[in-house]
Design a protein around this nucleic acid. Structure first.
Length: 278
DNA sequence: CCGACAACCTGTGAGC
DNA sequence: TGCTCACAGGTTGTCG
């Protein structure tokens, strides 16, 4: 799935199509995603109006206003998992095999498709989305201005394992998945094998700068990273952002010419340049 | 507390 | 052509 940039791109793409719209109901076609898809969801959202369209980490949050007071709002929490996507469709468009959920408006549908079903669509019956247990343990947003190298350094201080899986830990920092972890570490010149507690404060500062820049570039490029990611507006992401190390094992490093290596950390592929990263 | 690993599920591409 | 295997964006629970 989609890492933070792809979720943010999806958020921006669907927002103008759903914001302020009256929800007529919902169609739930597949019982089992990461959590069961509640068949009563349609009844819960019908008659509400879409308010804010937010993102927290890799979660999309759709405010569903109810009644006359903000206190009656609830939230639709959506996660795209590894293979999820959202699309705006015309009413009546036949659902494909992996189209598990539709949010129904008068003249359009917000359709959730997820072949691997690691994604999630749940109703959160509370006006405060952050009270959801799904969001409770999430670390800071990468673009939070309050986040700095000092914080990162402090958190990494009691992690003795290699930095790369730690960078992907949503309790440390949200939104950095497998692709952008490798990419950010390369840009920061930090080896994915380096023990997290042996990354000094200055390098933490640098790493954070590179995480932000990597994510920002990917957002600007329209969520470029995914082979089969489909934009909500239809069409594929433009492949403008070139990965510097990800999926480039055996190829030459773009900055020094050494051969990019691949290894496995915590069950995931890591790519890095043995000469540029220490 | 930490970290490695399996599990969840489908699709795809490589190799035979 | 068709089989089997490895691997793919994430998260969570279990085990050591």
């Amino acid at each position: 799935m989609p890492e933070l940039p792809e979720v943010e791109v999806a958020r921006r793409a669907i927002e103008p199509h759903v914001r302020g719209r009256l929800i007529l109901g919902a169609a739930c076609r597949s019982p089992m995603l990461r959590q069961p898809l509640d068949p009563a969801l349609g009844r819960l959202v019908a008659g509400r109006r879409v308010g804010q369209v937010r993102r927290r980490g890799k979660y999309l949050l759709l405010e569903c206003e109810g009644g006359n007071s903000p206190a009656e709002s609830g939230w639709l929490i959506i996660h795209l998992g590894m293979s999820g996507s959202l699309r705006i469709c015309p009413v009546g468009m036949p659902a494909g095999r992996h189209d598990h959920f539709d949010l129904e408006f008068q003249d359009s549908l917000l359709r959730f498709c997820d072949p691997r079903r690691f994604g999630l669509v749940v109703w959160h019956p509370d006006a405060a989305p952050e009270s959801s247990p799904l969001l409770a343990r999430l670390g800071p947003e990468p673009f939070d201005p309050a986040l700095d190298g000092r914080y990162l350094h402090r958190v990494l201080a009691h992690r003795s394992g290699p930095i790369k899986p730690v960078l992907m830990d949503n309790a440390v920092l949200v939104g950095v998945g497998n692709i952008y972890a490798s990419e950010s570490l390369f840009r920061a010149g930090v080896s994915p094998l380096r023990a997290a507690n042996r990354v000094g404060e200055a390098r933490c500062e640098r790493l954070l700068v590179e995480v932000r820049e990597t994510l920002a570039e990917a957002i600007a490029a329209g969520g470029s990273s995914l082979r089969d990611y489909v934009h909500p507006d239809g069409g594929h992401g433009c492949f403008q952002t070139v990965h510097r190390v990800y999926e480039r094992a055996g190829e030459t490093c773009l900055s020094c010419g050494a051969t990019i290596r691949q290894l496995r950390q915590a069950g995931r592929s890591t790519y890095y340049c043995p000469r540029c990263q220490h």
